[in-house]
Write a protein that binds this DNA or RNA. Structure first.
Lengths: 161, 161
DNA sequence: CCTGAAACGACCCCTTC
DNA sequence: GAAGGGGTCGTTTCAGG
């Protein structure tokens, strides 16, 4: 589907604060409340906006430790096998198959380092896993709520330096 | 701060759908709408809930490609230096310093592989960067909206297998 | 523009320390 | 008897058509 600048502005506004009223969004983007609502409804129907969610502080919920784990799997392991397996761990908040030496990269959130260790232990014990390589997160530098940036506008990135 | 089970249930409900009415949430958790609102207000004040956001489909916005990039930096590079530098790239949606060989891990979203390449090129050109090691994401297996799980309840993970 | 509904604040009640 | 948390009600504002 096609998104114009107004759609992108509306999305950016909703990513910033999903509880704004349509009138408030309208003021920001230069539309009436009704027009904004029509566009938001359309954006939801077309799947550009998939829902609305509360942003929570993992720390406040007790998730103080995170880690990235590279997964090295047996030759014939299917991505769907990995997906099925890691989905059973609530601690695995993200996972993807990747290029390079490892087959997959997992992002884990846990209550402490000991907890991370237990989860990795269990994952490593799965049949198709040959070995794992973990990195504990020391400090988070960036954690962007996605969707604010605008690829099509060709301002792909600032030009640092 | 202290979170009881009611707070956790309310958070889970809001993570699932931030646009539910207080009355609806109240039905789920067993409270009146007013009581829910009071708790939500408190959760926001204390920082457990940091805001409300629209969930967007990166694909629909044109971000079809992602990559993870390990950063190897010069000996005396400070985390804040890395943070400052990578924050200028809207394509860097997450970054953290980590244990292991690499100093930091970046998560990049871009419009296509060529775009990823350009961003990595620019990052690699930064003064403190010695080298980079990139992995393109082939397929995303898990992408959890964080906050649904409940660490304190001691159901740390399913027991797969 | 109009209607129904939700948010919001005020007030009272109950419990607990 | 003071403080914290919950329920009820009335008013205002927003969503939705």
């Amino acid at each position: 589907m096609e998104l114009d600048q107004l759609d992108r502005d509306i999305i950016a506004a909703l990513v910033d604060d999903a509880r704004q009223t349509y009138a408030e969004i309208g003021q920001q983007v230069g539309l009436s409340a009704s027009a904004v609502k029509r566009r938001v409804d359309r954006l939801r129907e077309t799947g550009a906006i998939t829902g609305f969610s509360a942003r929570v502080s993992p720390q406040a919920l007790g998730w103080t430790t995170e880690a990235y784990v590279e997964l090295f799997c047996q030759g014939k392991t299917k991505p769907s096998d990995i997906a099925l397996a890691v989905n059973r761990f609530p601690e695995v908040v993200a996972a993807a198959t990747i290029t390079g030496e490892a087959d997959a990269l997992l992002h884990i959130r846990a209550t402490d380092v000991r907890h991370v260790e237990r989860v990795i232990e269990r994952i490593a014990a799965m049949a198709f896993v040959v070995r794992t390589k973990s990195s504990i997160v020391l400090s988070r530098l960036v954690d962007t709520p996605p969707g604010a940036a605008v690829p099509e506008a060709r301002n792909e990135s600032a030009t640092p330096g």
